[in-house]
Simulated scan of single mutants.
Amino acid sequence: MSTVEYEQRDGVARIRLADPERGNPLTPSTVGELGRAVRRARADDVHVVVLSAAGRTFSVGGDVSAFAAAADVEQMVDDLAESLHRVVSDLHRMDAVVVSVVQGTAAGAGVPLAAAADLVLAAESARFTLAYTRIGFSPDGGSTLLTASLGLHRALHLALLNPVLSAEEARAVGLVARVHPDAELDAAVEDVVATLRAGSRTAQVAAKHLLRETATPAAEAALRRETLSIRARAASADGREGVAAFLGKRPPHFPSSTP
């Protein structure tokens, strides 16, 4: 069953995560489908891409149970991170203006995936949390690039303390462009799409690339560093304990924190 839906009409590509029963986890198969959808949007030469998710959750991030079951978790995480980073890079480099739409929870890699868009719209119900260090992992998916959009100390706060940001808090720190009542979110997305479609595409493309290249001139090198870090953390004693604690619904007892 496909977990990513793609539709293209009138210069607008709509890519939707479609595994709502499980919270739209970013599994290897889903990330592969997502990458193909993004490449298809580039090939279709669309003006706008709308990235959204079915159900009440944008994405819970990685499938922690799959990490626990992997025969070689280090290789699995490396492959998954590299695949997700290719998606993020493609979203950054494509000429289309990318709009992400977040409702419910965006956790783990779901946060930098949403932030990979050029404009992030959120429902009032939206919540954002990185949560990586809770399971002994380091951030990936483009989380380090948040230092450009949020500032270093705000990004460190998200990465080290794992707070859950409300939609309004996310807007206040610069992660979200606009917040709308849940019932009005779909209409707000269509208003933004219509405004972009009515504007100069060449001017929008120039603005997108100028600002992105200035803010994150070494984005792909940063993504590679994320891959190397998270694969090592996933295979570490802390990473194994964090995954076991998460699945067992208990507080973790990280070996590196033991006196």
Rank of each mutant, 00 (worst) to 15 (best):
E190G: 09
A194W: 00
T195K: 08
D186F: 00
R154C: 14
L160M: 12
R154D: 15
V176W: 05
E168C: 05
L196S: 11
V164P: 07
S149D: 11
L119T: 13
L185G: 14
L156C: 10
L165W: 06
L150S: 08
A187H: 08
R171A: 15
P181I: 02
G199A: 14
L121G: 13
L130F: 11
E184R: 11
V193P: 11
F128A: 09
A187R: 12
F128C: 09
F128I: 03
V120D: 14
D191P: 10
G174C: 08
A114C: 07
G174N: 06
A148Q: 09
Q204G: 10
G174S: 09
R134W: 03
A207C: 02
A198L: 02
V179F: 03
R171V: 03
T147A: 15
E169T: 03
V193G: 12
L165R: 07
H180S: 15
S166Q: 06
A117W: 00
A117R: 03
A194Q: 11
V164C: 13
A122H: 04
S149I: 07
A183N: 12
A207K: 05
R171Q: 15
L156W: 04
S200I: 01
R127M: 12
A170L: 03
L196R: 04
L158P: 09
A115Q: 12
A194Y: 01
T144G: 14
A131I: 00
Q204F: 00
D186R: 04
A188L: 02
R201M: 11
V120Y: 05
K208T: 05
E168I: 01
A188S: 14
D182Q: 07
V173E: 08
R154Y: 06
F128V: 02
A172W: 01
Y132S: 12
A115K: 11
P112D: 06
A170C: 08
F137C: 05
L113A: 11
L119F: 07
